[in-house]
């Protein structure tokens, strides 16, 4: 992983579980969004949670980050039972939500600076990191633009910078590359790789298998709210299999005898 060697490792990682859930479930009324989810992610792992649309990925991240209250089960982060109001957890984690909740009336650099200061960084260090991160995510030229005027991709990049500013031990990313241009996406992947290389844990959700295949060390496949398969990517590659194949095996493929409506094929328009 590029850049990993330049970063010092977080002490005590790799030996403990960064994320562990048992029997985790979430119901919305009568609908079961997540059921009996048992997730064990070792510290320092780049873990991908993949699944079709509506599989329960965002709900799972919501429960892991304390935004959603589980209907059943428990969440342990970094060895402690999760208390969403305890600032300790916030200081250890960084979150990029699917729809980042930023202050639209702040400028990009102000939003980042505010994040840095609220995470306890001294003003000069916060300013230094703000500059560096804005440069890293390619928002330097728009640093003084109001967040309201940012495009979706720019917001995602700013949210990523905010999540990284305090160098968290645990990073939750919900569809982080959605709307982000190819160049920035490449940079962000390098940053995440480096972060993982120094012992931080990254949990990423995506429905794009190629992203998970390239970035993650372990991948969990979630379908209809259940963890239906889990793979070590190195093992998978050694076996000559691909994530695509395992995904189809676990979730099911499109039927071969898919019959398109006649009007779609150009007849009887």
């Amino acid at each position: 992983m590029t850049g990993a060697s330049a970063c010092a490792r977080i002490p005590g990682t790799m030996t403990e579980l960064a994320i562990s859930t048992s029997n985790l479930g979430k119901n919305f009324g009568r609908r079961r969004a997540v059921q009996q989810l048992g997730l064990r992610v070792a510290a320092g792992t780049f873990y991908g949670l993949v699944g079709p649309n509506g599989a329960g990925k965002t709900t799972t991240i919501g429960m892991l980050t304390g935004v959603l209250r589980p209907s059943s089960g428990q969440v342990h982060l970094l060895g402690r039972p999760l208390d969403p109001d305890d600032p300790w957890f916030k200081r250890q984690t960084g979150v990029v939500a699917e729809q980042p909740a930023l202050f639209s009336r702040l400028r990009g650099q102000e939003q980042l600076m505010l994040s840095a200061r609220l995470f306890g960084l001294p003003a000069d260090e916060a300013a230094r990191r703000t500059r560096q991160l804005l440069q890293l995510v390619g928002l330097e030229a728009d640093a003084r633009t109001l967040v309201a005027d940012y495009s979706r991709g720019m917001r995602k990049k700013l949210a990523m910078a905010c999540a990284l500013v305090h160098a968290p031990r645990l990073l939750f990313l919900d569809e982080p590359f959605e709307g982000v241009d190819a160049l920035s996406s490449q940079t962000l992947r390098r940053v995440l790789g480096a972060l993982c290389g120094r012992g931080a844990t990254v949990l990423l959700t995506t429905h794009i298998l190629e992203v998970a295949e390239k970035l993650c060390q372990r991948v969990g496949i979630i379908a209809a709210g259940r963890l239906v398969a889990e793979h070590d990517m190195a093992e998978l590659r050694a076996r000559g299999s691909s994530l695509q194949q395992e995904f189809v095996r676990a979730v099911g493929a499109e039927p071969d005898d898919l019959e398109l409506p006649a009007w779609l094929c150009g007849e009887n328009r």
């Binding site: 304390g66 600032p87 916030k90 979150v95 202050f103 994040s115 609220l118």
Partner: peptide, 10 residues
């Protein structure tokens, strides 16, 4: 929601 990531008690 906007303050959710910050280590500040509600």
């Amino acid at each position: 929601r906007r303050f959710q990531p910050f280590p500040v008690r509600p």
